[in-house]
Amino acid sequence: MSNYKARIVETPAGPTRVWEKGRGKKLGYLAGLNGLPKWSPFLDKLAETHRVIVPSLPGYPGGPSSEPLDTQLDWVLAARDALVAAGLDGADLIGASVGGALAAEVAALWPKSVRKLVLIAPFGLYDSDTPIADVFAQRPGQTTVLLSEKPTDYAGYLSVPKEGDAGEWEVQTLRAHIAAASLIWPLGDTRLSKRLMRIMAPTLILWGHNDHVIPLSYARRFAEGIGAGTKVKIVRKAGHTLEFDEPKSAARTIDSFLAS
């Protein structure tokens, strides 16, 4: 794992980190709740068959500040700007969790900017009969258990590296959570339902079978709402962070969808 390249691109929101690895067709990835504090095995698997390009969203590790962003429009524009600056306009795009809500928005508002779309357990909808869990009201140490089916591994991935500064790492994590809260507090409903039908890119919807954050029933809601053809795939032994829980299975499914 590694051998990825890092660069900084300019966006209207500020300097933005872009990670890149692999050869082939461009494939973008917008990460979820905690962002990407480190490179991940999932990206390695994708990079075996694609040129994986990973821009950071505002507030997340490597991203500019999310503080100036007030509205959903601000966030959608920031996501679009990051994708364009990273050279991903018109490419295939994966969005996970919070990043999934923004990937869907970009695909809806700029239909030609996304060739094929992969949504991994995205936020953006809310069903009061099957509410989304409150990821922000968790006791210390419980969040990883809620998010992942392999909480120890996931906590390890999020932990400060040996050579890292624990204090700065904590602040970086806090910024990511603030960014997530800024976008999806309090219910996770970004009113995306009003725009789903505008998505014209063929879409794969991936959901962890044991997602304790967003119930499985939301996969169907997304599939029914999206204007283009959709395919739903449930990944066993995976939670909300399915690309961390089952990186090989997730990458294989995505690769197969993009190649079809």
Binding site: F136, A137, R175, H177, I178
Partner: peptide
């Protein structure tokens, strides 16, 4: 009080965390 409600992200600022 449930400690789950004690620390929503952003309520405690970066400066206070530091």
């Amino acid at each position: 009080t449930d400690p789950a409600y004690a620390n929503p992200p952003g309520y405690t600022s970066e400066a206070t965390v530091r």
